[in-house]
Design a protein around this nucleic acid. Sequence first.
DNA 1: CAAAGCAATGTTACCGGTAACATTACTGCG
DNA 2: CGCAGTAATGTTACCGGTAACATTGCTTTG
Lengths: 350, 350
Amino acid sequence: MSRNNKPDNKPAAQITMEDVARAAGVSRMTVSRALKSDSPVSPETRARILKIVRKLNYVPDQSAGTLSTRRSGFAATLVPSLNNLHFAESVQALNEQLEQIGLQMLLGHTGYSAEREERLIESMLKRRPEVIVLPFDGHTPRTIKLLKQANVPVIEQWEVPSKPVGYSIGFSNWQAARKMTSALIERGYRNIAFVSESEDAWTRGAARRAGFEDAMQSAGLSAHRMVRYGKPPISIEDGYHIGSGYKEHFADADCIFCVSDAPAFGVLSALKSQQIRVPEDIAVVGFGNFEVSRFSSPTISTVEVDARGLGRQTGELIRRLLVDGTDIASVPRHIEIDVRLSFRESTSSM
Amino acid sequence: MSRNNKPDNKPAAQITMEDVARAAGVSRMTVSRALKSDSPVSPETRARILKIVRKLNYVPDQSAGTLSTRRSGFAATLVPSLNNLHFAESVQALNEQLEQIGLQMLLGHTGYSAEREERLIESMLKRRPEVIVLPFDGHTPRTIKLLKQANVPVIEQWEVPSKPVGYSIGFSNWQAARKMTSALIERGYRNIAFVSESEDAWTRGAARRAGFEDAMQSAGLSAHRMVRYGKPPISIEDGYHIGSGYKEHFADADCIFCVSDAPAFGVLSALKSQQIRVPEDIAVVGFGNFEVSRFSSPTISTVEVDARGLGRQTGELIRRLLVDGTDIASVPRHIEIDVRLSFRESTSSM
DNA sequence: CAAAGCAATGTTACCGGTAACATTACTGCG
DNA sequence: CGCAGTAATGTTACCGGTAACATTGCTTTG
């Protein structure tokens, strides 16, 4: 039992299926079958093999399996950043679904850069993922080519793509911001300022800003109160900095609409430290329904987005595409995530 | 050029190295060499091959490479949860380092469960990771056996392991909490309450609680004011709930030490809504230096922990172990992350 | 000028699994 | 009783790369 025939004292050779087969007195193939629950192996043989597998702590090498079956078991997943609870939560929810399907997530973050995205995709394609999940922020032409050539389902998240590569799941940030802006106008606000990142050419933030502008202009109001500061993802601290420039930016404004709850909280904090009352002197509005917006004082009005739900639904979509015997043609190309306006203490109730 | 000999109209065959070799009129091996920058290939041949590679959009299949070289290029990474900015940030920082080294992260979250951790490790071992990074929260016996048998560097993060499997990086949560508690006592607080999760048997929260208890007892004070609520990771909302029970839990306390900044913010928020003044009526202290604790009002005293730094240093450790020609024996088995006490407005300055 | 050295490329075998087909030993049935 | 049918297992080849060694044609050197 404790013999050691092989004199290879180099890299402490891994146990292979061959070792298990030898110990069980069967062929490799039978071991392979014993490990697949639906294959025809006699119960006794299977039991014997599984016992040996456990004893030797044998762990199959999936690279070899992948090579043969041409199924990698990988789901390539990109997010803009993990440094944002929304993305982190959606990744976590997606990961839980993937585990159930038996897929391993390959994670990367684009850092809001289309070039980084391209590099990441290229490097992940080497792993032959069975599905590719990525944020829609606009892609480089080469990225699009790579995605198409990969020949696997592509799922774009968060924003509704103008020209979808494959499937998509999310909501129109433009419309959501427009809706919130219109609701604010309806509540009597006229001089609304908008706070967003300074470099958001490709992000959802830009779509929100455009939605804000459209709503203002449609109502005959000016959308010139624009504050751009901080790199995405814009932080509480960035918001605090912006809020500290109240006199400069917001002296004649009656409401500050922020591109996300993080800067909204920061703005709020800065206003309080200047004794400016919210919502009496000025209203503050966020986007995303981060936990902090529900427990700040005053609580922050915001656009509620269900990030966990988005991750979960992405997982369900993948299941339908890869696992279930679904007729692929019947799977919807786009899944709309609904958003809700939530008015809290940081805006007056009229 | 556009011939299609193979009649396999099933899975739209991927382009392989053979295809490139044929197009370039060389052998597979030469193509393989042309793609490795340090291999001896004539400049002209390499240029010709690379041109074809680009034209065909050839992407090598890394499973095949892995099988042959026995190097997977994977770094298995586990975190308790992504739903916590600390972990999310450390993962992001680690990922940035891994990319530079050319490693792909395999991510999983344990959900604070040792059984889930075991399952995840088993499944990741199938990918033959070159390094395994995981939180130290205590492991199942089988997990430890699997880790040792994997025969690759194991790095335990966040807490200093009692019996390290391999390398470790982090700090003693026990000592950090003890230090903060002692400092609070020194500042005159006597009736300090401690807020933590209800099910933290294996988490760093338990270590912090023990450190608190030890400091209190060493000072001859009672550590009986314990509030346990919420599942890890304890949230702002959990903190709010706890803070709402002020009369019940904290009527005779002069300070509330929370296991993390999230519940501290929630507690603070609940106290304010009950017109209880912080720090005049009672002090509030957190742990972790989350961004929110620097911008709440009052700002929250806390234990500063550099999560990004921990992730980055983990990456550097991996580089030393796998890439650099370092003498492995010279690599330290443990890297201590230093923590700092940060006193802000939520505690009186004495 | 022969022998040695070297740069560039090719050949063969193998990594560790699984698909596909082959074989073997039973079982049931006309 | 012989043959078809089936369950259990074995054999062979292959997935797509790369390690290791072989080969080829020059150049260098004593």
